[in-house]
Nucleic acid binder design. Structure first.
Lengths: 193, 193
DNA sequence: TGTACATCAGTGAACGCGCGTTCACTGATGTAC
DNA sequence: TGTACATCAGTGAACGCGCGTTCACTGATGTAC
């Protein structure tokens, strides 16, 4: 690999830079030029690879969903009992949101990516599939007679809500608890609405 | 009120404009200049009133929380039974998110306002207080022995997750259901994690 | 009833900035012969 | 083994844009006397 002209893996270097920018300055600070700067490359290089800004962010979101899907699957595989799988997925969801905040924010904010991108659609559906297949393996008794899709949405909404409220700093206004102590408490308190 | 120089209620006119901008072009399109344009006023007028951009958005969020708090309170008062209050609050939360999307987005995104603003803090805490007081009026039996704070967080996370997933367009990828049919189903399916 | 004056809302010109996009280009690489 | 050529990655100058902020200003309003 030459030192100069041909970077070798610029695509990944740029996506890495995007992550850094979000980590340091938030999603609003992402720009093609700043990503180029951090990758040590001319400011028009990113457009060459990704077409435009939204293309770069969509590629970033796709990469996020790939890791996310793998982690969800690993969580589901980490337990034998259905309800243990269920909990493991929930905890891993929140863990991902906190550890990989830049991905999470771009993945789940519609204005930050192109949801119509076929690859994006595919990889995001796959992630949801992990949750669905766990729910579908539940017995009618375990589901309390609930529709599996609704049960999946319910679980998803709960962890997604916790994650976003935490990331937005709203929760810390109301409780001093460590996030995972809180998660534990919330999972146990998940009373019937 | 003169036609020209002194507007009379520019502050509100600007906040109204902010709502319009978000409705039409999303939170990223908000600017002092665009708000001024829509209020039919010079571009430096908003700074005169709000100090800077974040000041304008924080005022917008405050206004949102005021309406939000009132609606939460009205929902809580609309029923006699505790669990009916609980449900009413949940539905109203989601209804607010959908009907008043611009407010909702600015209220719950930390980078869109100044969370340290004393008035903001006050009015957002008040809203949460409505939920807390309903949960606190529940008997130990109704709570299934759960900590009231955790029960409140759990309910909050559920509806907040539903609302944000819906607004971000993520849910519509997976279900064709009307939002409130889905909400109904999810509330009923709210199984123990 | 009239005048002077303080206050405050809103103006408009100017500034510098970072951005996305375009485009003709150049340097490196690999392949065909 | 050497040469010609196509391909593709990355360059860098240029463009126009909308933005936030500043600042000396002006027009309207109300109050004191």
């Amino acid at each position: 690999m030459s030192d100069n002209y041909h970077h070798g893996d610029l695509q990944n270097a740029l996506l890495h830079a995007v992550g850094e920018i979000i980590e340091e300055k938030g999603v609003g600070a992402v720009s093609l030029r700043e990503a180029a700067r951090r990758a040590g490359v001319s400011h028009s290089a990113p457009a060459h690879h990704f077409g435009d800004k939204i293309g770069m962010l969509t590629a970033f979101a796709r990469k996020g969903f790939e890791e996310f899907g793998q982690r969800m699957q690993a969580a589901a595989d980490s337990a034998d009992e259905v309800d243990a799988k269920f909990r493991a997925i929930g905890v891993e969801y929140i863990r991902f949101a906190v550890e990989r905040r830049p991905y999470f924010e771009v993945m789940f904010r519609s204005e930050m990516h192109d949801s119509a991108d076929p690859d994006f659609k595919c990889v995001s559906k796959d992630s949801f599939g992990v949750l669905m297949s766990v729910v579908e393996s539940m017995s009618a008794e375990e589901l309390n007679g609930a529709d599996p899709m609704h049960a999946a949405m319910s679980a998803w909404a709960l962890v997604h809500g916790l994650a976003t409220l935490w990331l937005d700093g709203t929760l810390s206004q109301f409780t001093d608890e460590d996030l995972f102590t809180l998660v534990q408490g919330v999972f146990e308190a998940d009373i019937k609405v």
